[in-house]
């Protein structure tokens, strides 16, 4: 029952951060700040959802010692790593492409990239 409570708390934290990421996606003014919201908050929320699954699977592995749950743990951790690495690289690619396509950061106090002229 302790494992169920821990999994419940982790799922609630993950859902809150996912919802905050989408609210930021709808609320922020330009594409770079939207990328901030979507990349960071959604990755963090998904990591917590997967941690809830991992805690649940660890508890079932100790209760039943069914080796299927070991596979669940390892594959979920691999999925979390794939998600984190691909989200970081993908957001870098989107921001670079957006800058190349002529999107200037609209409320910005400084733009060193335009001064460097790359």
């Amino acid at each position: 029952m302790l494992a169920d409570s821990i999994a419940f708390v982790l799922l609630v934290i993950g859902l809150i951060f996912n919802a905050l990421g989408v609210i930021g996606l709808l609320r922020f003014p330009d594409v770079y700040t939207r990328l901030h919201a979507s990349t960071k908050a959604t990755t963090f929320g998904s990591i917590f959802l997967c941690l809830g699954v991992v805690v649940y699977a660890i508890a079932h592995y100790f209760w039943t010692s069914d080796s299927q749950y070991l596979m669940v743990i390892v594959h979920t951790i691999i999925a979390v790593f794939a998600l984190a690495v691909t989200n970081a690289a993908g957001s870098h690619a989107i921001s670079r492409a957006a800058y190349k396509s002529g999107q200037i950061p609209e409320p910005a106090v400084v733009d060193k990239l335009a001064e460097a002229g790359l």
Binding site: R27, D30, T33, P105, A108, V110, D111, K112, A116
Partner: peptide
């Protein structure tokens, strides 16, 4: 909603 964005080197 308190943001002050910018691009730095």
């Amino acid at each position: 909603g308190r943001i002050r964005p910018g691009i730095i080197r």
